[in-house]
Structure formats: C-alpha cells, structure tokens
Simulated scan of single mutants.
Amino acid sequence: MRFRTDLKNIRTFSKLVAALSSLEKIAWVRLDNDTVRFTVIPEMTGSQVWASLSLDLIFDNYHIQSAEANNTINLELALVPLQRALKSAANSSYANLRLTKRDGLPMLSMTIHTMTKDGGGGGGAAAAAPSDRDNLPRGTAGFNSTDPFADNFQQESLELTMKRELEKVITQDIPVRVLHPETVETIMQPKVREPDVHIQLPPLLQLKAISDRFTKLAMTTSSGGGGSKTSNPKLELSANMHGSLRLRLKAETLDITSVWTGLDNPALDPSHINMPMEEHPSVKFKEAGPEKWATVRVDGKDWSKVLSVGRLDGRVIACFADEHALILYVYVPHYEEVGEDVVTYYVSSFSS
C-alpha cells in the first residue's frame, strides 16, 4: 500500500487534531479515494467523534493505493505526535505526509520545509577609504568620464549586503498501526432516533467558559458543609424549538442556570427525513410551545473537552434526543474556497 500527500490548511488541521486529542490519545483514520475520516472512541465512558472530511480541506496532490476497495487504508494513529508535528509545520513553506517504514515498523512521516534568513557575516559594510579621484585632472588614469555612475555610487562587498534564504528540512515520524478490514468492521457509528430539538449553539468558547465555571463550582462546593467534593459533576442541558438553550447545575447546596435566547432552530431537509414532516418529533415539540424542553445530562469534564472544538470557529448545530443523547454537528469552513465539512460528536445522556 502507498499513501502520500501534501498538506494545506495546516492550522485548521492542527486545531482539529488538538480537539480530538483532548478526548482520547488514539484515533482511527480511514483514508480512501474520496475522503479522510477520523474516529475517536474513548476506552472508558466519554463522547465519541466521527469526523468525515473532504480531501481538499487538508490535503493536496493526494496519492493513495491499496488492495482494498476504493484504495482504502485504515490506520490506528497516535494523536499527540501528530499534533506536535503539525505545530512544527504551522509556519512552513511546504509540508508533506507519507506512509513509510522505520526499522520494519509503519510510520506516517511528515517532512516540513521552512525558509530561514541568513544575514551573512559581519554587522555592516566597512567605511570607504578616502579617495583622491576628485583631485585628478580629467583624462588621467583612474577617472572615466563616460561612466554615468562614477560620481554617484560606491562599490560594496556582495557578502555584506546580500541576505540569503536558506531551506531547513525537518522530518517527524508518527507511529501508526495498519488495521485489518475485519477489525474496522467492528467500529460502528451510534444510531440515534430522530431529534426532538435541533438548535444552533452560541459561540462554543462562550458556552465553554460558563460550563467550566459551573463544573468548578460543583467540584468546590461542600456537601452539607462536610468538605466533601463532587468529583464527577453533571450538567443539565436543555433546548426548545423556540430558540432557547438552558444550562443548569443542580446540587445539594446550589441550583444555578444560564439561558440563551434568540438562537436559530434551522429548518430540516425533508430529503434527510424518513417520515412525513408533520410527524417529526421536532414539529411536535414546536407545537407544544416554549415550555417544552428536550434535556440531556452530561459529564462536566467531558463536556468541556467536547467544547474545545470551538477553536475551529465553525457553526454548531445541536440535536437533542430527549433523555437519550446529544449530537453535535460542527461545520468546519473551507477558508480558501466555498464549502464546509462536518465533524460529528456523539454525547450520551446520563439518567436523572
């Protein structure tokens, strides 16, 4: 099998990998002729990520070959070394990625080219020696009356005035495991019923700041004054079909809530619905009025990691399956051309 590509939108790629690595240090990467997919499924309980990206978002001059259908290659990838390599490539003039071997072990090798300035030797040109040229009579040796530059320019050393650009090449290896197709078949995306509420979230960094504040309060609040701390606080998220989102922390000694209003409930695409529009749960929730909320309960620490995807600066649509799960669709913009890609987060709800 063979895989080689140039990298583009390195900053976007780096932000995505940083968001994924906050949830888990290992990801499954599926490469084929058309797409690249990153999947993160924590070993313990936690949110899952399914990121399906078009090739032209992060790759250029893409070449792939394998014996599998659609030239598919499945890799288990360590995210922290990849994040470190992308950070090194942030200011590069050119970077590429290829599948190779080191001592018989598979590696993703990233080659990074950067240009550095060489100021040359010395701090500046030496002072010009005095000349008696101006005192010589015209027509004598040392004076060329036909040289238009003779009286206007002094000769200087080329080494002292020219700054050269030098190319620096760095190679970083990211360990991978090549996965057998039968192993990959066991990785299944969760199936969720049609959402009861779908709503566009406020800026995630804003939502994260308030969520983190609630989580910190829950962890530092004593239970009954005895000094015990809540090590795994739960936050309650609710939304309705009238543009409102509610974040609540309820504990033994406090009950606090933040509410956002005026948010957008985007229209559904009928072609993506397997039922008549009038029978869709979200329509029934909307008809029930603004007091009808869909609610999920999330782990505060895990929720904070999920919200780190806000660094991608994309719009986020949250789909609430009441008392069951929360699905986040993060639309990553193509900054160089028109288009978006979708990163999907699956967050399970805890029971009340």
Rank of each mutant, 00 (worst) to 15 (best):
P270M: 00
L254E: 08
P266E: 01
P270K: 08
E236Y: 15
T230W: 12
L235P: 02
E236N: 15
E291W: 02
E252D: 14
E278H: 14
S238P: 01
S244F: 07
D264G: 13
D299R: 01
I256F: 03
E236T: 15
F285N: 03
A294V: 06
G289Y: 05
S258P: 14
P281A: 12
W293P: 11
T261Q: 11
K286C: 05
L247N: 13
K284D: 11
F285T: 02
I256D: 01
L245Y: 13
N274A: 15
K284N: 09
P281G: 11
N265S: 06
E287R: 08
L268I: 13
R297V: 02
K301V: 10
L254T: 03
N240R: 04
E287D: 12
R246S: 09
S231L: 15
S238V: 06
K250T: 13
T257P: 06
A251N: 15
K250W: 14
I273Y: 03
N232L: 07
K292E: 10
M241P: 02
F285Y: 02
V298M: 05
L235R: 07
E252L: 08
P276M: 02
E287Q: 08
I273E: 03
H280S: 08
I273G: 00
S231I: 13
S238I: 04
E291M: 10
P281E: 06
S244E: 12
W260V: 02
K286H: 10
